[in-house]
Design a protein around this nucleic acid. Structure first.
Lengths: 140, 140
DNA sequence: CTAAGCTCATTAGTTAAGCTAACGATTGTG
DNA sequence: CACAATCGTTAGCTTAACTAATGAGCTTAG
């Protein structure tokens, strides 16, 4: 029987390897991992303050400021004043942001989707289950 | 039925979230993810040239030069001349490197191991299976 | 009802990690 | 033996993470 630590090590190593592998497949000029992830979260949520988005991405607020800066420079995100609190800012995706996001999603999933396609139905189901378990762990 | 792309997206998102979560648990002064991973690979292999280690870590040679520099500054790794080819260098872990590695491994797995412990035996098995599948994909 | 303190976003400055291009030393080859 | 290839490194750029500090705006306690 594998110990909790052994399972943890297996999981961590597998995740590290896949993370590095995925980084290699990013085409130049496309969104970085952080930009892509932040844009996705924002698009799903509809509108968030920088702090809320930072918390969703598990990053400190200054880090999110920078990511949002780059996205705003490219016109993918907009900063609007908060209706009642003038300290705050409300972030939302632009039309252009949503289409860039969709294009990036397709490109990103091409490689990994191709790999998934080579797996048996049972293996694919294992991956989906594992993804949900990992999500639960990450929230803890 | 989930499409290959949906499964890929689930997997990628789960991995991103856990990666960021794990980064948060790194104590200051400890090895970074890259350092830890490189040191682990080197320790497993015994001795490698910088290029071989870069390939194992799926990183370009200059990136590995920097990582090795930091590890060497801390005395965790040593560079020795190649026996026959004076262009090459042979890297190996030091005694100190191996003990730092072991301590780091324990610290890193404490949090994740704790999370794994809260899962059912079936869920743990799902994670182990998924880790193996992901490893196979990453090698492709 | 205003002064003090809190919260929000941002800026500044550090560290780390990734990349490509270019270089010096060395080896192999035509 | 000259020329090409290889190896590791350096240099220079970008991205991303952090903490500390700042300024603007809100909230509240006296």
């Amino acid at each position: 029987m594998a110990s909790n630590e052994q399972t943890a090590a297996l999981l961590r190593d597998a995740i590290n390897r896949l993370t590095r592998r995925l980084r290699q497949t990013r085409p130049v000029g496309e969104l970085t991992q952080s930009q892509f992830s932040a844009l996705t979260s924002l698009d799903l949520a509809g509108a968030l303050t920088p702090r809320e988005l930072a918390e969703a991405e598990r990053v400190q607020p200054p880090t999110m400021t920078r990511i949002v800066n780059r996205l705003e420079e490219r016109g993918l995100v907009q900063r609007l004043p908060h209706p009642t609190d003038r300290r705050q800012v409300v972030l939302s995706t632009t039309e252009s942001g949503r289409s860039v996001l969709a294009a990036n999603r397709r490109a990103r999933e091409a490689w990994l989707g191709g790999q998934v396609a080579t797996l048996s139905a049972e293996e694919q189901e294992t991956l989906r289950r594992a993804a949900h378990i990992v999500d639960r762990i990450s929230r803890a």
